[in-house]
Design a binder for these strands. Structure first.
Lengths: 138, 138
DNA sequence: ATGTTATTGTTAGCCTACTAACTATATGGT
DNA sequence: ACCATATAGTTAGTAGGCTAACAATAACAT
């Protein structure tokens, strides 16, 4: 069945993408997932952990643990909010900010590789169908 | 850029698919990834751990650990090969074999959800493009 | 026959990611 | 003012996935 194949291909691509990212990010001393976290922070700094949960679509303990690691790497720091003692806001250090370009290079490399031999009009179609799938599975 | 968007969508879909699988598999007391391992074994039993590495595209320690867990669940057992003392072969138990149908149901549900509103001819196109991407990133 | 090399799998340690149970702070009702 | 409830993060414990270092067996060369 075509549908089975599409799901299996998606699984396969996910696994392989993850492996490729892992290999490339290792040279920057990063793990897969951490790049996504940094990406959110490059877009917007000083955000709460709760907001990071929503935007990265993962659970609070994942955020806590990942931030502890990134903090120990010196890429990030946390500061208690002044008006609400429960929330802590997350900021990038200079070192964290400097990782933007090398990580973006990795993403660019991966997407070039991914889309090799796929024509511009096919890419448009692909984006449309993938947007649909992304909405479907939420 | 379209290319960025496609990569990002793929990342997003991967993460969400994983979450969905996790939620559904939990009801069978399985974790994401274990279903892939079982899938391989449903297709072919008595295979070596090395072969599982290749087919699941992951590293030996991952196999060792996952098999230990699945063994503790009583879904799988290992037996030393007669002719080669280094290799151990992996077999399904009855309990492990019985999980095939419920897991397949989960996959079917997920792929239906995934492809909702996508026309048959679009699915054909999608499969073709995804095959291409899968080959590209190996 | 013996020592070197290759292959198979394991162990230790790191990381993301999850649930369940918890702490600490805010808020809202009476 | 006080107590119940909601919200934000943390801790403990489980599991997949990885690398690096290791043990055990097999194969090969001399």
């Amino acid at each position: 069945m075509i549908d089975d194949e599409i799901r299996e291909l998606l699984d396969k691509i996910s696994v392989q993408m993850r492996r490729n990212y892992a290999d490339m990010l290792r040279e920057l001393n990063l793990h897969v997932g951490q790049d996504q976290m940094l990406c959110r922070l490059w877009r917007e700094d000083g955000v709460t952990q709760n907001q990071l949960c929503e935007r990265l679509n993962c659970e609070p303990p994942t955020i806590t643990n990942m931030l502890r690691t990134l903090e120990s790497y010196g890429l990030v720091y946390r500061k208690k909010d002044d008006s609400d003692g429960r929330v802590s806001r997350v900021y990038l250090t200079t070192k964290g900010r400097e990782l933007y370009e090398p990580v973006e290079l990795i993403w660019k490399k991966q997407q070039e590789k991914l889309l090799e031999g796929i024509l511009p009009e096919e890419r448009l179609m692909l984006r449309r169908l993938m947007k649909q799938m992304a909405e479907n599975i939420i």
